[in-house]
């Protein structure tokens, strides 16, 4: 269980306040209008932003995650872009997930190769990011998430820059990898389709708070005005 207890922060003019429980081992879609605080939720969990109240706690099981440095936290983040270092081969970009000095043992090299294979990039390890397509670049980043072996995968609109067909392909890959490796995935997305295809649960955020949480098949049927406005349905 991931548990956000009174996690408050303020960015610019806006206040955010999260109280939230998420079951492990599932894919959770985090939805809401632009600027509502979807990414902020993920950034708090990853440690890129600190809560600003003393009573805030973020727990994974019984462990206080919010007290750890970003590199100590049990998460891997994937952004919309800039997930890779442009001057580094796909292999090295993955290898960074194991050791930032890039000095790997034979075992670890094998791990990287396996991960490359799992994300469908076998034989492309020597390519630079600019020699890969947008979808392939995101696959490299997914591969790095695999070698890092962290139980939580935080995806911040990772497919928004991709064409619809590629999007579906990537969604399927994320789904199968998360099942295979028992990952809990938090996926920030704009597409209701993503939520239905991928996620078991939807967390809907409005004005910096969790507004609604429930099974994803119920999401589209909600009569709540915020959700209807977001989905573009007239009230």
């Amino acid at each position: 269980m991931i548990n956000f207890k009174q996690v408050n922060c303020r960015l610019g003019e806006q206040n955010f306040c999260y109280d939230l429980q998420i079951q492990l081992g599932q894919v959770v879609a985090v939805m809401g209008a632009s600027g509502s605080g979807k990414s902020t939720l993920l950034n708090l969990l990853a440690g890129f932003i600190q809560p600003q109240n003393d009573t805030a706690q973020i727990l994974l099981g019984d462990e206080r995650v919010d007290l750890l440095a970003p590199s100590q936290r049990p998460v891997t983040s994937l952004f919309q872009e800039h997930n890779l270092f442009a001057h580094m081969s796909a292999f090295n970009n993955l290898a960074l997930g194991i050791r930032t000095s890039l000095k790997l043992t034979v075992d670890e090299i094998a791990q990287v190769d396996t991960a490359l294979e799992q994300v469908g990039l076998k034989g492309l390890g020597s390519r630079l990011p600019k020699q890969l397509s947008g979808g392939q670049r995101q696959r490299v980043a997914l591969g790095r998430a695999l070698v890092r072996r962290k139980p939580l995968l935080l995806l911040d609109e990772p497919f928004s820059a991709l064409d619809p067909a590629l999007r579906q392909e990537m969604a399927a890959l994320v789904k199968s990898l998360s099942q295979q490796h028992q990952l809990t995935v938090l996926l920030v997305t704009h597409e209701p389709r993503d939520a239905l295809d991928l996620a078991e649960t939807v967390v809907f955020i409005a004005d910096g708070r969790v507004h609604w949480q429930g099974p994803s098949q119920d999401f589209l049927q909600q009569t709540d005005t915020h959700i209807k406005a977001y989905l573009g349905q007239s009230c």
């Binding site: 950034n43 990853a46 440690g47 890129f48 440095a69 970003p70 590199s71 100590q72 936290r73 998460v75 891997t76 983040s77 952004f79 872009e81 800039h82 997930n83 270092f85 442009a86 001057h87 580094m88 960074l96 997930g97 930032t100 000095s101």
Partner: peptide, 23 residues
Amino acid sequence: ETWRLSSQLGMTSVDLWRHIEWP
């Protein structure tokens, strides 16, 4: 994103110089 990535990967000052700043 690059800085966030580097802090998640736990890069040291030397790593940052080698992988990010120098390139």
